[in-house]
């Protein structure tokens, strides 16, 4: 076999590798974009559930004004995030609903009348499920971003990525410092139980 043919085969393999890495990166980028849209989609669902919950509990707890304010904030930030699709808006919307949920649960637990209302219960389980769906769509984004960014850093796919100017994806904006990654002194102490 002539040396020309061998070179040709090698070149073919290299080209094939380039194409497959390039296409793999493009696929991941579109998947990441789609997973962000999915989060927006779930936020929209949440935003449309909240008014229903509001109207069905309004009769029971007209005195609990704070809760309605929180629900309104949560809804408006969810709508904003769903429309803009920006990751920081999404983070805010999620934290808004997460801070409101426990208070609503407590108010419902305290009030036997609401607890017995099946409409309210339905909305609460739907909201809880939407929270799960949000969690899983965020996980999808995290996983995709991880495998994309890994390809950008690992040799030899990093060569191709830099050649075509692929940029690292941010994924979910999670602060790398702060209370959620630190262990406080109190948490390292043994738990004392008085019986």
């Amino acid at each position: 076999m002539g040396i020309g043919i061998i070179l040709l085969i090698v070149a073919g393999v290299v080209v094939f590798y380039f194409v497959s890495v390039y296409n793999g990166l493009q696929t991941l980028q579109t998947q990441i974009a789609a997973s962000i849209q999915e989060i927006g989609n779930q936020l929209k669902r949440q935003a449309s559930l909240i008014p229903n919950l509001e109207s069905s509990v309004r009769g029971y707890m007209s005195h609990e004004k704070g809760i309605f304010d929180m629900l309104t904030t949560a809804r408006s930030s969810a709508t904003k995030a769903a429309n803009s699709g920006s990751v920081s808006d999404i983070d805010k919307a999620i934290s808004d609903i997460q801070s409101a949920m426990p208070k609503i649960s407590i108010a419902i637990e305290d009030n036997p009348e609401i607890k017995a209302d099946s409409t309210v219960n339905n909305f609460m389980t739907e909201l809880g499920d939407t929270a799960d769906k949000l969690m899983y769509s965020r996980r999808s984004l995290i996983d995709l971003t991880q495998s994309y960014n890994q390809k950008l850093l690992m040799f030899p796919s990093s060569l191709i990525a830099s050649m075509f100017g692929f940029k690292a994806e941010k994924g979910l904006a999670t602060a790398t410092t702060g209370a959620h990654v630190e262990v406080s002194d109190a948490e390292t102490q043994d738990v004392k139980v008085n019986l």
Binding site: E38, D129, D132, K133, M135, Y136, S137, R139, S140, D143
Partner: peptide
């Protein structure tokens, strides 16, 4: 819903 959610994640 649990199945739906896991499929979103996967």
């Amino acid at each position: 819903t649990v199945t739906e959610n896991l499929c979103i994640g996967q």
